[in-house]
Simulated assay, not measured.
Amino acid sequence: MAGTTTTTAVAASASSLNTDKLNFDKSLSFESLKRVVGEWNFHEGTKTGDALSRIPEGTEVVVTKEMELPAGVVALLPSSVKLICEAGTGYNNIDCEAAKQRGITVCNVPEYSTDAVASMVMTFVLSLSCSLIQQQRKLWGRGSENREAWATLQGLRHFELAGKTMGLIGGRGAIGSKVGEMARVFGMKVLISSRSDRPCPGAEVVSLDDLLERSDFVSVHCPLNHETRSSLGTKAFERMKRSAYFINTARGGIVCEEELCEALDSGLIAGAGLDVQVDEPPAESSRLYDLAQKNLILTPHIGWQRRESRQRLLDSVARNIEGYFRGDPQNVVN
């Protein structure tokens, strides 16, 4: 298989805590992992409270996928644990500082789903630009009302992307850069905001306020950390055009979700596409479900889930483990 390692397996023990999060359709191969570590324990459905019981003494490597490993759990890990591999890009679910204090290396996989997530962003853009969901919804059922829907847009927005502006918050990373590349194919102008003001080929680097005010689509591409948590709320939405759309495929916690709901409900912004939410799934009482009947496209964090991306992710985790045992750890985040 392309991208897999061919080294002899290390005589070590590893535990994958929530394997079903990755292999929910039973379509993936785990051979790349088995080639680098001789003994594996593959668990499913592990919750944070179950983690310690599934990491016995002697385990050297722990693999997780978006599962909370707070300081209290990290502090009680067996002394044999030396490496925690987050099977994904975001690692805000792991207390990296607590791991560092225990001498445990934490690594992630930064670029396994670049094309998949960028495609998800553009799927939102294309769908919002032609009111695709609302257009389909008005044809549900039969009768004269549906027949009339063929003759008019009935007030729904429908516009070309050429000449429109795509604003990428934190857009210098792999996914943001890919979105910029795709947007330019459609004739869109690209703005990015980041900590660095160095030039970015094919895009104009601007302040966040400038980006919000000028963009027709605002897409989030920054990590979730103590600086970005709840950093986008009413003040940001008030700066956006009333005709603009907000897209988030990064992390739900970056956005003040209730304030976004209010902006959508009041018409402060035209609409949104969310593949990530603060709580996944959102609570039954969440306003997101009602807004999904109006001007919100809501998807269940599927951007990274294409089968090819998930296989690439597993193979990349294997390379991270191989690098660690080789004395050359890769993608270390602590």
Rank of each mutant, 00 (worst) to 15 (best):
S243M: 09
Q311M: 04
E308N: 12
T123I: 07
I192V: 04
E160L: 12
H301T: 00
A174L: 03
R184W: 01
M240E: 05
V179T: 07
G58I: 05
V73N: 02
G252F: 02
W304Y: 15
T105L: 12
V117Q: 01
I302Y: 06
T64W: 00
E66M: 10
L153P: 04
S243P: 07
E181R: 05
C261I: 11
I254H: 00
L17M: 00
L212W: 11
C261Y: 09
S113M: 07
T123R: 10
S80Q: 02
R312P: 07
S316E: 15
S285V: 11
T19Q: 03
K241R: 08
S194V: 08
S215M: 13
D265P: 03
G58W: 02
L211V: 14
S13W: 12
I192N: 00
A149W: 07
D95I: 05
N295T: 00
G72L: 01
H158M: 13
M240T: 05
R195S: 11
C222Q: 13
I104T: 05
C261T: 12
A14I: 03
T59G: 12
L132D: 03
V218Q: 06
T5V: 15
I104Y: 04
G323D: 03
G327P: 00
D25H: 09
A99K: 10
A51D: 08
T19V: 03
E44R: 08
S177Q: 04
L153G: 03
K34D: 10
S27T: 15
F217Q: 05
N248I: 08
L132W: 07
F186L: 08
Y324M: 00
W40V: 11
P223V: 04
S309D: 02
S231G: 01
R312S: 13
S16G: 14
M120T: 15
L274Y: 09
F246K: 00
F159D: 14
L208Q: 14
P300W: 04
D275F: 03
T114E: 07
F325L: 04
F186G: 03
A183C: 06
C256L: 11
Q101Y: 06
Y289Q: 07
M166I: 14
D328C: 09
L212K: 13
M240V: 05
G271P: 08
I94Y: 11
S29Y: 01
E238F: 07
K82H: 09
G267T: 04
L28V: 11
A149H: 09
K189P: 00
A71S: 13
M166E: 12
G163N: 04
I94F: 10
C130I: 15
M188F: 02
E258F: 07
G202M: 08
S266L: 07
R147M: 14
V61K: 10
F217E: 05
Q305M: 14
L191T: 02
T59C: 13
M1P: 13
K65P: 10
R147V: 14
E204P: 09
C261F: 08
L208Y: 06
G202K: 11
L161T: 10
A99S: 10
E86H: 13
T19C: 01
I321D: 06
A75P: 01
C222I: 15
A292R: 08
E31N: 12
S80A: 02
R229Y: 10
I302W: 03
T89I: 12
K241W: 06
V36M: 02
Y324W: 03
V185A: 14
L291W: 07
R54K: 15
M166G: 13
S16C: 15
K21M: 13
Q136S: 05
I55D: 00
L76S: 13
E280D: 12
